[in-house]
Lab assay of single mutants.
Amino acid sequence: ATNIVSKVKWYNSTKNFGFIEQDNGGKDVFVHKSAVDAAGLHSLEEGQDVIFDLEEKQGKAYAVNLRIK
């Protein structure tokens, strides 16, 4: 899926990962520091509106092509 609009559930800049809620009630989506860095960001804030693409690797959903709404 591409261009999903949602909100950051939480992000831990010390552990370099977090999760984004899915508005459709699906499972929370993992977001890694590499996606945050690629977006030119230093961190994410809880409740922040984001747009991302969903990529599945080894049966897990990852946020990629992250951008701020």
Rank of each mutant, 00 (worst) to 15 (best):
I51N: 03
G18Q: 01
L44V: 04
V50P: 00
N24C: 11
Q22C: 14
A39M: 06
K27N: 10
A1V: 12
D53G: 03
L66P: 00
L66Q: 00
G25Y: 09
D53R: 03
V64S: 07
K69A: 13
G59Y: 05
K27C: 10
E21Y: 15
N65W: 02
K69C: 13
A63Q: 02
A39W: 04
G59H: 06
N65K: 06
A1N: 13
S6G: 15
E45C: 14
V8L: 04
F30R: 02
E46S: 15
F19A: 02
G25T: 08
V5P: 09
H32T: 05
L66T: 00
V31I: 10
K15T: 07
G47Q: 06
T2D: 07
A63M: 02
N65T: 03
S6V: 04
Q22G: 15
S6P: 02
G59T: 04
D49E: 15
K27G: 10
L54A: 03
K69F: 14
V36Y: 03
D23M: 15
S13N: 11
V29W: 08
V36P: 00
R67A: 05
H32F: 05
F30W: 04
I68C: 08
T14S: 13
D37M: 15
K15F: 11
K27L: 10
K27P: 14
E46G: 13
T2I: 13
D37W: 15
Q48M: 13
I4T: 06
V8I: 09
N12R: 09
S34W: 11
T14V: 13
S34G: 08
S34L: 11
V36C: 03
D49K: 12
A63Y: 03
G40W: 05
Y11Q: 00
K27W: 09
A61Q: 14
G26A: 11
T2M: 12
G40I: 04
D28E: 07
K57T: 10
D49C: 15
N3L: 06
D23L: 15
V31Y: 02
R67K: 09
I51K: 05
G47S: 05
Y11L: 00
Q58W: 14
L44R: 02
D53V: 04
V50A: 02
K60V: 08
V5H: 14
D23Y: 15
K9C: 05
K57L: 10
F17D: 00
V8P: 00
V64W: 08
D28Y: 05
E45W: 15
H42W: 12
G47K: 06
V50S: 01
G25L: 08
S6C: 08
N24R: 11
G59S: 06
H42Y: 12
Y62I: 07
D37S: 13
L41E: 06
K15W: 12
F19W: 10
Y11S: 00
Q22E: 07
N65V: 03
S13V: 13
Q58A: 13
K9R: 10
K69L: 15
E21A: 14
Y11I: 01
G40P: 01
Y62V: 07
N3Q: 08
T2G: 07
I20T: 01
K57V: 11
Q48R: 05
G26H: 10
D53E: 05
V8S: 01
R67F: 05
N3W: 06
K9T: 03
N16K: 14
G40Y: 06
I20N: 01
I51H: 05
N65H: 08
F30H: 02
G25Q: 09
K33H: 08
Q48N: 06
T14L: 13
K33W: 10
K9Q: 03
G40E: 06
E55R: 11
N12W: 09
S6N: 06
A35M: 08
G47Y: 05
Q48S: 08
D53K: 03
V8D: 00
A63V: 06
N16S: 10
N16T: 07
E21W: 15
A35Q: 10
V8R: 01
G25K: 09
T2L: 13
A63S: 02
S43G: 13
D23R: 15
A35L: 03
A38D: 08
F30T: 01
K15Y: 11
G18T: 03
K33D: 02
E45G: 09
K60A: 08
L54R: 08
I51E: 09
W10K: 03
S6T: 05
D53W: 05
L66S: 00
K7W: 08
L41N: 03
V64L: 04
K7H: 10
Q22N: 14
N12C: 11
S6M: 06
N65R: 09
A39Q: 03
Q58S: 12
T14F: 13
G25R: 09
D49G: 12
S34D: 07
G25H: 09
Y62N: 06
V50H: 01
F19D: 00
G59F: 05
E46A: 15
W10S: 03
E55T: 09
D53Q: 05
G25P: 08
I68G: 06
K33Q: 11
D37G: 08
G59M: 05
F52C: 02
G47P: 01
A38E: 09
V5K: 12
K57G: 08
Q58E: 13
S43V: 11
A35G: 03
S43A: 11
L44S: 00
I51M: 12
G47F: 05
Y11C: 03
K7A: 04
F17V: 02
W10M: 04
A38H: 08
L66K: 00
V31P: 01
K27E: 08
G59D: 07
K57N: 11
K27M: 10
Y62S: 08
A35S: 09
K27I: 09
F52S: 02
N12L: 07
Y11R: 00
K57H: 12
F30E: 01
T2N: 10
K33N: 04
V64E: 04
V36R: 01
A1W: 11
G18S: 01
A38W: 07
N16I: 03
S43E: 11
Y62G: 04
L66E: 00
A35F: 05
I68E: 06
